[in-house]
Structures are given as structure tokens and as C-alpha cells.
Amino acid sequence: KTYPRMGSIQGFVTKDKVIDACEKIMLVQRDNGDRKNRKHARLKYTVDDLGNDVFRSKVEDLLGYSFEPERQYYFESNLDQFGWITDETGHHHFTTFVENGRVEDTAELQFKTGFRELATYMKSTGGEFRLTANQHILVSDISDEHLPTVKKIMAKYKLDNTAFSGLRLSSAACVAFPTCGLAMAESERYLPVLITKLEEAIEEY
């Protein structure tokens, strides 16, 4: 049986401990998650099976310290911020729109080739790639010195194109056919077509 549920609060950690805490949460899931039943393999079921208090204690045992009491928080958005931003250290970051998270070369766009050329350049000059939770790619930690060349490579392969509708920028799909054994219909392969049809309908009406 599968079901939706809200997330469970574990507590608070300062930002310098976030990566460590996330790693330990994943380790508890690795060691206690259901590896026999794919439908029951997600983290939320592990939390429910163990109970939130037990799950938290296992994470804290690995951390070597306890979570602080939860603090007030709020979400302003769950969308990616596409385009260039500059952080407080002066480094530059660009979020690239990658439809359905699929990095490939097509007749229209040479994304795979472009990212490979960008990676070759960044390997010797600094910078890195990061994946967003929405399946897009962040070209990150670019210095002022190397920014013009990075921009040139991105423009060459249209990696800097963010001129898409809000509907398309916010869309995402699982793989489904032909590789998912649980799929019952098309998803990733059809979504771009569906988005185009919806965009045309919205424009018309």
C-alpha cells in the first residue's frame, strides 16, 4: 500500500551541519529502508515503520549530537531561479533549464556536447555542476575571470536559454515508458508535446 504524507520534523541544525545531517539521514534510510518491496522503499515509509522518535535517535547516534528544537520557517518558493545570480563571495551561478532532467543531444539542442565542453573548461579553471531538486543543472562557482568564457560556451550551445513559459519551466515528469517496469503510460517522452499543446491553448484563449 502506498500513500501520501507530510514530512516529519526532525529538528534544527545550523547551516554548517546541514550536509552532515542529510548524509546521516540517508545512511539511516540505507540501513533500514525496505529493499525488497519497491513500493515500500521510500524514506517516508521507513520513518513510519520505525516511528519518528526512533528514526531521529538513529540519525543522532550517527551524528554524535542531538538536533536542536525546531524553529519557525516558511517556504517562499519551490521553483528554481533560472539565469545568473552572484553570491556574497562574488562567484557567479547559472541555473540551466533541462527539460525533464534529460541531458542529451537532439537535432535542436546539443546539450550533452555543450555540457561536456563546459566541463572540460571548468576542470582546469574551477567551477562545478550541481543538480537541483527539480532536475535542472546549476553551473556554479564561476569567478569573474572565467565568466566571459563560460558565457560564450553556454551561448554557443544555447545552454543559457531561459526564454520558456512558466508552465514549461515548472514542468517535470518521471521516465515511465520505456524503461520503468511500473509504468502504465507515456510520461517523459510525451510531456514536452503536451506542454506545447497547453501553451498554444493558453495563448489562444
Rank of each mutant, 00 (worst) to 15 (best):
Y74T: 13
F97T: 00
H93S: 09
F67A: 02
E68A: 12
H91Y: 10
E68G: 04
H92Q: 09
H91I: 00
D80M: 03
E70H: 06
H92C: 04
Q81W: 05
D87E: 08
Y73H: 15
E76Y: 10
G90L: 09
T86A: 11
Q81F: 08
D87A: 01
Q72S: 15
N100Q: 06
N78A: 11
G101N: 02
F75T: 15
E88C: 01
F67G: 01
T86R: 14
H93W: 11
E76P: 07
F75V: 14
T95C: 09
Q72D: 14
G101R: 02
T95E: 04
E88H: 12
D80A: 14
E70W: 07
E68H: 10
W84K: 10
H93P: 07
E70M: 14
I85Q: 09
H91T: 12
F97Y: 13
G90V: 08
F97V: 00
Y73F: 15
H92E: 03
G90R: 04
F82S: 11
T89C: 06
L79D: 13
V103D: 05
I85K: 08
T95F: 00
E70G: 10
S77T: 15
E70L: 13
T86K: 14
T89R: 10
T95Q: 01
R71I: 15
E99K: 01
F94M: 07
T96F: 01
G101M: 01
R71V: 15
N78E: 14
F75M: 13
T86N: 08
R71N: 11
F82W: 05
T86F: 03
F75W: 11
L79Q: 11
N78L: 10
D80I: 04
T96P: 02
I85M: 05
T96H: 05
